[in-house]
Simulated scan of single mutants.
Amino acid sequence: MHPIHLIEEDPGAPESALLMAELSTALEAITGDSGRASFDVDDVRGPLACFVVARGGDGAALGCGAFRPLEPGVAEIKRMYARHGTQGVGSAVLRYLEDEAQALGYQAIWLETRLVNRRAMAFYEARGYARIANYGKYIGNPLAVCFEKQLS
């Protein structure tokens, strides 16, 4: 396994934008929705938010992920992505985000994915996330599935 370096970066930087564009294309192919309407780069900037890029030993961008404040004590994961063919990138990004959220005082992390995105659902469930009632804009959306992980 090659080293994965996790670096907090500007979500508006060209390479960050490219990673998120690749994610949007992949999501559109899987779910029919790019997810762009549910994300604003300004939401993952600031003292209670985080945007991280995973880089290989050669500095190449391999994936990204972010969280934003959702409600008191709860952060929401956004824009989780690992480039096709990478190994361990998604897990490393998620672990980093969980650690950062906990360090910032969050008690829980929530996220939404689509029911049709079985791979994402299995990924989160394997990492301790449990299904919860749909929240916010996802309430009443039968295509959405929401998850939570309590931070210790």
Rank of each mutant, 00 (worst) to 15 (best):
G57E: 14
I77T: 04
P72T: 14
P69D: 04
A92C: 06
L94M: 14
K78V: 11
R95F: 11
Y96V: 03
R79D: 12
M80I: 15
C64F: 13
G65C: 12
S91N: 13
V93N: 02
C64I: 12
A92R: 04
H84A: 15
A75H: 05
L70W: 15
D58G: 10
K78N: 09
E98Y: 03
A60F: 03
K78S: 03
T86M: 03
V74Y: 04
F67M: 10
F67H: 06
A66V: 08
A82M: 00
Y81D: 01
R95P: 00
A75G: 12
F67P: 07
L70R: 12
E76W: 09
G65T: 12
A61I: 12
I77P: 01
V93Q: 02
Y96I: 04
G90H: 08
L97N: 05
R79V: 09
R68L: 14
R68G: 03
A82R: 01
A61K: 10
D58Q: 06
P72W: 14
P72K: 10
V74D: 00
G63E: 11
M80K: 01
R68W: 00
G57P: 07
A75W: 12
R79S: 10
L97V: 08
P72H: 13
G56R: 01
A75S: 06
G85V: 01
Q87Y: 09
A66M: 07
Y96H: 15
E71V: 14
G56A: 11
E76D: 07
A60C: 10
G63D: 03
G63Y: 00
E98I: 08
